[in-house]
Design a protein around this nucleic acid. Structure first.
Lengths: 255, 255
DNA sequence: CGATGACTTGACTGCTGTCAACGTGCGTGG
DNA sequence: CCACGCACGTTGACAGCAGTCAAGTCATCG
């Protein structure tokens, strides 16, 4: 059945080559604020790569910086390593988010990016992006906004790592994920964790055993329902209260 | 003596109005990578304000975002507050560094900036900066680099807060300051802390008592000499080793 | 000279890390 | 289909680092 094969290829290709204008993420991704009739210029420089399998790297620490990446589907973690080989997770990245922005300054990647599940990304060559941003004020502004938000979120993380207790950290993390999923049209009340307990603990500056214990305790307290990777938030109000943050109003980290 | 008065005013005014081309910081500040003959265009939008006294704010949390600021002399701290009123110091800022970059995304300041000593800054209205960066590719690139470096440094801070012990944190902090002073032409072996023990502890996620104890211990171990605000680094090698970072080669955080 | 704020030092407590054993689900291969 | 191995996750016991509380010292300034 040659026609069927061809169709499959076309369909895959179509799926992979969704232009920004048709992408469901264009309300939260790079194209925000760019005129419809100029969007094709951004499209033209973007390379839609084949999906990255779970466990594979998008780039490694020290890799030459050439492009930033927008997550299209799936999820990634970025992590740095200390000289004694330890790993520090610096972030988890959901569809619509950009990775690699920390590499611009030194022209090489200070962190690695690893797929937590099958993940597809848009590759945006930085030199092209930079020259294009000379022509498109909207693109310039959006780049600034995205980088600024990243700085703000990192400051927020400093607050969490600097003075929150273990409970507060995990609660804040769960609420933050909830908000980010909601922003993408998914339920804010239940989602699947794509990262391991160990990754969460590492990210939050806690031992993985602590994460495990807290999941159990939060469940006993009726805050959440945990089943392996699946999280259901039963009492969002109270979970917010535990996190010690002003997030009851749906506005929060990573909104 | 009217003439003397006038002279004083002129001299102060001259001091305050140093153009970027004559500023000793132009190798590390915003003008990096901008053509000499285009620098006047940047100069034109910059407002050199009167100095901010110790303890005064440059901006408060929630203030409308209108400009970013470059520190010309003195130093600042930026801090966020949690809803229970606690303060989290998010950074210390030395001459040549930009503050306010985290406010672009939401159009309001998520942190406050307070002078640690008498401090003068250059105010750079953001809308002007943004439109000017449409004309000057060099300015665009430098803005990206500066924001990228801020993101990278914040990631580095996550590593410190996430998995370093108290000793390692303080050692890394002292080395980082040393590197930053060196970059500005000051001695990397001795400098004055412009912030309190409490600020340092808060920034590093430690109690101020812990900072105090560590200063004493580092001194007993012959790593540093402390006299009130004055720090002398006696054994840089070993201090680096304590920090657990690859910083013996003078390259490091905040280079 | 006293008041004030910043810093130091000590005693004690407790949160969270570490170590260790055990349980559970999933994929692989027989 | 089942057995096995392995990675991941859970739970318990214990210990240590750093926080908290409290008292005391020191410098600076009015």
């Amino acid at each position: 059945m040659p026609s069927r094969n061809t169709e499959t290829v076309v369909s895959l290709s179509k799926q992979m080559k969704v232009a920004c204008g048709e992408c469901s993420l264009n309300e939260i991704c790079l194209p925000v604020g760019i005129d419809k009739d100029e969007l094709h210029r951004l499209d033209a420089i973007i390379d839609r790569k084949r999906p990255v399998a779970r466990g594979e790297h998008l780039f490694h620490i020290g890799d030459r910086f050439q492009a930033i990446y927008a997550v299209r589907s799936g999820s990634l973690k970025t992590y740095a390593t200390t000289e004694d080989g330890h790993e520090q997770v610096t972030g988890f990245h959901l569809p619509g988010e950009l990775v690699g922005l920390d590499a611009i300054a030194e022209d090489c990647h200070p962190v690695a990016a690893k797929a937590l599940e099958t993940t597809s990304v848009c590759e945006i060559p930085f030199s092209d992006l930079e020259s294009l941003s000379g022509d498109l004020p909207g693109l310039r502004h959006q780049m600034m906004r995205i980088m600024s938000r990243e700085i703000r979120d990192d400051e927020q993380n400093m607050v969490i790592l600097g003075q929150k207790s273990a409970d507060e950290r995990l609660a804040a993390f769960l609420i933050s994920l909830s908000n980010r999923y909601r922003r993408r049209g998914f339920s804010p009340y239940q989602y699947n964790l794509t990262m391991s307990r160990s990754d969460i603990g590492n990210y939050l500056g806690l031992a993985l055993e602590t994460i495990s214990r807290l999941f159990t305790r939060f469940q006993n307290e009726g805050l959440i329902q945990v089943d392996r990777k699946h999280i259901e938030i039963l009492d969002r109000e109270r979970l917010c209260a535990v996190s010690g943050a002003r997030c009851a109003n749906w506005q929060s980290v990573h909104n």
